[in-house]
Design a protein around this nucleic acid. Sequence first.
DNA 1: CGGGAGATTGACTGATCTCAACCCGGGTGG
DNA 2: CCACCCGGGTTGAGATCAGTCAATCTCCCG
Lengths: 234, 234
Amino acid sequence: MKNHTAPVRKEYFSESSSIFRHLTPEELARIPIDQDPDFYKRGTIVYSEGSRINGFYCVQRGIIKIYKTGFDGKEQIIRFAKKGDIMGFRSTITRERACTTAKVLEDAYISFVHADTVLEFVKHNGTFALELLQIACKELGEANDYITDIAQKTVRERLAEVLIHLRKDFDLDHEKYLQITLTREELANMVGTATESVIRLLSEFKQDGLIELQGRKIKILDEKMLFKIGNMND
Amino acid sequence: MKNHTAPVRKEYFSESSSIFRHLTPEELARIPIDQDPDFYKRGTIVYSEGSRINGFYCVQRGIIKIYKTGFDGKEQIIRFAKKGDIMGFRSTITRERACTTAKVLEDAYISFVHADTVLEFVKHNGTFALELLQIACKELGEANDYITDIAQKTVRERLAEVLIHLRKDFDLDHEKYLQITLTREELANMVGTATESVIRLLSEFKQDGLIELQGRKIKILDEKMLFKIGNMND
DNA sequence: CGGGAGATTGACTGATCTCAACCCGGGTGG
DNA sequence: CCACCCGGGTTGAGATCAGTCAATCTCCCG
């Protein structure tokens, strides 16, 4: 998986978006990554549910789908990780096995930082620890919102909400279509519904002039209305 | 709210279950709580959604219901906090407003630790920081499970699961009934369903000999079967 | 050109929700 | 002391959202 033309390297760790930005040069030097980030091709599993994770995965490029597998094998997408995001920190911190699977949606470059190193930093660099705590707490807040939404909103409302979130989290291409392309099934696995329901609702939204569809690509036309349909506040 | 016969005091902070247990005596001394924990009567709101929180609430006794209010005003119960749990740390860390409301279900004694103090500890005591991180990550893992369950399981399965969880998290009284008593509506707000559905399913479970009902009190008779109905792994 | 994955559509089913009536027990004011 | 009221708790009936099944269709690929 290594040995590609890595587009990003060690400098990544001192970029302003990185959680490692507050480390001292000495601490940075301690990160044992003289090697380039690893390349992961679309479709690759970075880690899977139940496996042991021994550190952080820092996404430098690409998109990774993070999901849980439910009782009947159905995926529930928890979130996507993209440039600047870290994956696997929950398991690293709690020392439990991974409770999610991370699968590459768009070719990715990912750096791995060993758990020992991370824990070292947490213990000796308060700013780093706080940073990490903030990330965890942010996710926790989002998870709580998600719970409430899934429990209380209709599929229609949730789909509208998911579209808005995608719009916020991902860039648009030159034609204003969402950069991220998902199968209908993946959309369904975010919303928590059946594929067919997503299909029907999408074409409804399209009929109502709220979105435009081009195969898997989606363009948001009427964000305001989707916002309303999704009963959103933020 | 103060001035009751406080059953627990400052010693609480050095108890083995406390997140403060790894603080040095000097650090402990810095916690500005020479006063007893505050008493909160059943029904009291400790903090509510949208308000600013300036620190941690450490539950020393009692049960607090933590919930979000959905679009149409319906509660979604996220979790319960009881002895040893802390509340409000998410907002304290992220500096955002509270995204949940905390309401007392059983008379409680709660200590408050100011955000500055907490942040101080996070920055200067690595073990404390790690401890907090672990708590956050644990909750995060649970939240992810919750999301998957609500999205994929039927109401019946979720109710069975909720009962099992209650069984695990709360003690039994002398007659083996669950100590915690919830209204049918509260159960519904945990499961994410309508009150009537909970009522119907509870009486089904009762008919099937899985549980016994005594008003609001619930006794688990056949945990194994509930486990199975809930499609649970852990 | 055949095969397979994903997308669509239609028909049917059924789990849940909603609405409405009614019950029950406790507390209260007359 | 008692009628009344109110907050749950129950039950039944009907409405419906959304899931399942099955048949097609459309690409894309080898």
